[in-house]
Simulated scan of single mutants.
Amino acid sequence: MAITIKDVAKAAKVAPSTVSRVIADHPRISEDTKKRVRKAMKELGYHPNVNARSLANRSTQALGIVMKSSADKALQNPFFPEVLRGISSVAHQLDYSLYISTGETEEEVYEGVQRMVHGNRVDGIILLYSRVDDPVANYLLEKDFPFVLIGKPHGNMDKVTHVDNDNVSASRDITNLLIDEGHERIAFIGGDTDLVVTLDRMQGYELALRESGLPIKEDYYIHAEFLKSGGREAVHQLFQLDEPPTGLVIADDLMSIGVITMLEEFGIKVPEDVSIVSFNNVYLSEITRPPLTTIDIQIYELGNQAAKCVIDKVCNKEEPAKRIIVPYHVMDRSSTRDIKDASLN
């Protein structure tokens, strides 16, 4: 049962109107009374409604944005500014503001989402990730709060509106590009294994290898953060093997840039010595040397569609769950080499 202002008032031994004035930080309320009321609010777990002075049925005209980690770390990856650009375009047209979570830890992110929901700070929430057994998604489902997920849900597929690419097929296609060029020793560098996008891209990689009769080697799997530093760490491990790979499937462009930088330090050239394929087609993928062959997942469109879906859910609580699949495209550039032709020369 939800805690009310009356419950706080009773615990603090004041009138409900005094609690309202404390929430509004009214100057005529003494500091002692404010401290007593705020202590009661904290002990009871009461989250004030930031729009309590507005009409009860008034919309906040705000959408919550939740990232998988702190905003400071997440925004290092160009994926997030671009997906926010797609969300913002729809929000601006429909006069919604954005409220971005800023927790430094998973616990802080979760608590921030609770405050969004309990405090009625936003009308709906967009999760910019999909995690295995994610407590945030489970909480929003439990509260029946309007939310949309960018990615494929780990569970409750029929209950969660989500906007995604077919990452299994995309990864299969990009891995087959290397196989068609004669590569047999192909490694996979992915993100955290509790992220559904990592699992899907790994599944597509394995599917392509099996269909081509190529072995799946445990030593050829590396998992790190979707950051430049993650790619650098992967090179250390893979290129100290007795049989290093000739091809790399990397689950994120920013990681790929870290890989290329580290390979240069090892004296290994791309694509002369090793071919690289990647995902996301962020703006850096075109200007890196060499330009990356990558999957364009249409990041802007993912954000655009997610914003439309969550606003639909906000406007109509009975809106059924939807699955929106944004098409992907292979951007064939200069980071791979056909080694079949080289072996014939």
Rank of each mutant, 00 (worst) to 15 (best):
175 T>L: 04
74 A>K: 12
175 T>P: 03
93 Q>P: 09
131 R>C: 03
56 A>E: 14
81 P>D: 07
170 A>P: 01
62 A>L: 12
144 D>R: 14
76 Q>L: 15
56 A>K: 15
155 G>S: 15
125 I>K: 04
47 H>M: 13
54 S>C: 11
56 A>N: 14
116 M>C: 06
42 K>Q: 12
69 S>T: 14
136 V>C: 04
149 L>N: 03
158 D>M: 09
156 N>W: 08
101 S>H: 07
165 N>E: 01
43 E>Q: 09
155 G>E: 15
159 K>M: 08
102 T>F: 03
168 V>E: 08
169 S>E: 11
76 Q>C: 12
130 S>E: 01
39 K>W: 04
146 P>G: 08
140 L>C: 06
56 A>S: 14
109 V>Y: 00
122 V>K: 03
113 V>Y: 01
102 T>W: 02
96 Y>M: 08
42 K>E: 14
133 D>H: 13
89 S>R: 14
126 I>W: 05
43 E>F: 02
105 T>S: 08
117 V>H: 04
76 Q>F: 11
47 H>Q: 11
127 L>T: 05
124 G>S: 07
72 D>K: 15
92 H>M: 15
130 S>Q: 02
40 A>C: 03
180 D>Y: 08
153 P>F: 05
148 V>G: 02
84 L>I: 10
169 S>P: 00
114 Q>V: 10
91 A>F: 06
154 H>L: 07
112 G>W: 02
150 I>M: 02
153 P>C: 01
121 R>Q: 15
92 H>L: 15
62 A>I: 09
59 S>D: 07
180 D>M: 09
82 E>A: 12
146 P>F: 00
56 A>D: 12
112 G>M: 07
172 R>S: 05
156 N>Q: 09
179 I>D: 05
83 V>Q: 05
57 N>R: 11
112 G>Y: 05
141 L>I: 01
142 E>F: 08
123 D>Y: 05
148 V>F: 06
54 S>P: 01
115 R>F: 08
136 V>Q: 02
156 N>K: 11
178 L>Q: 06
114 Q>K: 14
158 D>E: 14
95 D>Y: 12
94 L>M: 13
63 L>A: 09
